[in-house]
Amino acid sequence: MQAVALKVVAYLCQNQTQKKQRKLNMKKFIQTNFWQILGSLFGGIAGYFYWRDIGCSTGTCPITSKPLNSIIYFAVLGYLMIGTIAKARVKR
């Protein structure tokens, strides 16, 4: 019975340590990729407004016929553009 209790306590302690490590890893990821994340958010928002205001009325346009396609496309563009600018600024 004590062996099981010790295993449970060890598991819980290990689980807490893993949670802290994941939290630190996520914080580091966000800090290192802040501009890329921000660029993809702005790109996704811009993609939605592009679909809403300009979009394709016939439904034959592959990117602007659906809002999800437009959001994803512009989010990727924002990620790539801001990522390139951020990397160029770091190299200077």
Rank of each mutant, 00 (worst) to 15 (best):
S70H: 12
W35S: 03
Q16S: 12
A5P: 02
S57R: 09
T32S: 06
K66R: 14
K66H: 11
P62K: 03
Q36H: 03
T84I: 12
K27S: 04
P62W: 06
L68Y: 03
I30C: 07
T17P: 00
R92C: 03
T58D: 15
F29K: 04
G47W: 10
R89F: 14
Q2M: 09
G55R: 13
M1A: 09
G78D: 15
A46V: 08
F29T: 03
Y79A: 03
W35Y: 09
G39E: 15
K91S: 10
L68H: 01
L6C: 03
Q14M: 13
Q21T: 15
N15S: 06
Q2S: 04
Q16F: 09
I63D: 00
K66C: 02
Y48F: 13
F42V: 15
G47N: 09
K23R: 15
T64K: 04
T17M: 05
A10F: 11
K20M: 12
K66D: 11
I54S: 02
A88K: 13
Q16H: 07
F29N: 01
V90I: 12
C56T: 13
S40G: 01
K66L: 09
Y73Q: 05
I45P: 00
A10N: 15
K7R: 12
C56N: 14
Y48P: 00
K87M: 03
A5H: 15
N25S: 07
V9T: 13
L24E: 14
T64W: 06
S70P: 06
T32C: 01
G47Q: 10
M81K: 13
V9S: 04
G39H: 12
I82V: 15
Q31E: 12
M1P: 03
K20C: 05
R92P: 00
I63A: 00
Y48W: 13
N69Y: 07
R89S: 08
L68R: 02
Y48N: 05
N69D: 05
V9Q: 12
K27G: 01
M81P: 02
M81T: 13
I45Y: 06
Y79I: 02
F34N: 04
Y73K: 02
M81G: 10
P67N: 11
K7S: 07
D53C: 04
I45E: 04
G43K: 01
G59A: 05
I45N: 01
L12D: 09
C56I: 02
C56V: 06
A88H: 11
K87E: 08
K66M: 10
L24K: 06
L24P: 00
S40I: 04
G83C: 08
L6T: 13
T60W: 02
L38R: 04
W35T: 05
D53Q: 09
L24V: 07
K7H: 05
R92F: 04
Q21F: 08
K28W: 08
V90Q: 14
T32Y: 14
A5G: 07
L6I: 10
A88V: 14
G43A: 07
V76G: 05
Q31V: 02
